[in-house]
C-alpha cells in the first residue's frame, strides 16, 4: 500500500480514521490549529484529544459559486461531534437540499485525493450520511 499523508495534521489515518483537537488543559477549549495560547482562558498547555467520528449537521450551505479551480457544487457544513464543532464538507450524497438537511446524522469518511511524484497519497475527509 502506498504511503499516505492526511490533508491536515488533525486528521489521523489508520484503521479507524478520526480527528484530533488541541484541548486546553485548563478550560477544555478545543482547537484544530497550532496554538500559541488559549483564546478562552489564556492557558498555554494543550493535550491532543480524539473527536467523536459521528455527529449532527448544525449548519450547512451548498456552494454553487466558488473561486476558480474549486469544484462546485459542494456542501459545506458545521458538524456537532458530541459537543465539538467541526468544519467539513458533507460527502457521498448528492449536494442538494433534498439530500442534506439540518440535524441530519453524519459520520466521518475519508477519500484519496491523488498521489504526488513520490507516490504518496493525500487523504481528505468529510462527513457522510450515517443512515
Amino acid at each position: 500500500m502506498a504511503n499516505q499523508v492526511p490533508l491536515v495534521d488533525y486528521l489521523v489515518l489508520g484503521d479507524q480514521p478520526h480527528l484530533v483537537a488541541n484541548e486546553c488543559t485548563q478550560c477544555g477549549a478545543r482547537y484544530f490549529d497550532r496554538r500559541n495560547a488559549c483564546a478562552g482562558c489564556f492557558g498555554t498547555e494543550f493535550r491532543s484529544v480524539g473527536v467523536a467520528t459521528e455527529g449532527e449537521v448544525r449548519a450547512f450551505t451548498i456552494v454553487s459559486m466558488a473561486a476558480p479551480g474549486i469544484e462546485v457544487p459542494f456542501v459545506s457544513a458545521v458538524v456537532d461531534c458530541d459537543g465539538t464543532s467541526v468544519r467539513a464538507n458533507v460527502i457521498n450524497t448528492p449536494p442538494d437540499p433534498d439530500h442534506v438537511s439540518l440535524g441530519m446524522k453524519v459520520r466521518l469518511a475519508t477519500y484519496p485525493m491523488g498521489d504526488d511524484e513520490n507516490g504518496t497519497v493525500a487523504v481528505g475527509f468529510g462527513f457522510e450520511p450515517a443512515t
Partner: peptide, 8 residues
C-alpha cells in the same frame, strides 16, 4: 477551501 468547508 472547498475541501474543508467554504471560505467565501
Amino acid at each position: 477551501d472547498g475541501r474543508i468547508g467554504t471560505a467565501t
